[in-house]
Amino acid sequence: MSLIEIKHVNKGYKLGEETVPVLKDINFTVEKGEFVAILGPSGSGKTTLMNIIGCMDVLDSGEYFLNGRAIHEMRESELTQVRNKEIGFIFQNYQLIPTYNVMQNIIMPLLMRGMIHKEAVAQCQDIVKLLGIDHRLGHRPNELSGGQKQRVSIARALASKPSILLADEPTGALDTTSGQEVLKLFCELNEMGNTIVMITHDMNVAKSAKRIVKIIDGELLAEQ
């Protein structure tokens, strides 16, 4: 059983009276432990695909199974649970809550599943050490560099021990060095057994992945 199984998925957005198709008959699978890059230019539908994989958006038709569970049949409350337990998001612009410090941002998914503050902090100690941000835990996001912010974002994604790490242009807002560091980190995390799906428009970034899936005009073209 594949970790992610997407069958004949279609998705469109309404523009006035018309529906503009964004994803057209997408078929796609990701196995456990894979590091897959979805590569495509701007407007190709890769972010929409990521939103569907991340259970943040619903598909118009088709089927989506995550760990064997039929996501396409779930209600919003169930999707919320899936997002919290199965998916770790890493965003291009980090999406950290500016009023919380680093540790508060990292433990947030754990608190959401009912863990108490102390337990959550204890569970995240190894992760913050692994990502080299253990000396910045009391700082607010605006006191961190871009690379550090992305590490915090990765730490938050890892904190809930998800089935899949979903990264949307993770190096898009970083300088080359920081970008390379993040990609190296992704490779290490994948080596440790984490499944990663990364979305990018940059072939050089995509090359870090073990498998590249191209998407153009809402259609998956080929796999490399």
Binding site: Q81, V82, N84, F89, Q95, I97, M112
Partner: peptide
């Protein structure tokens, strides 16, 4: 709104 979006993406329930 953005903060609410982050919380929702991380799995914060409607009730919370």
């Amino acid at each position: 709104t953005n903060e609410i979006g982050i919380l929702k993406a991380l799995g914060c329930s409607k009730k919370d």
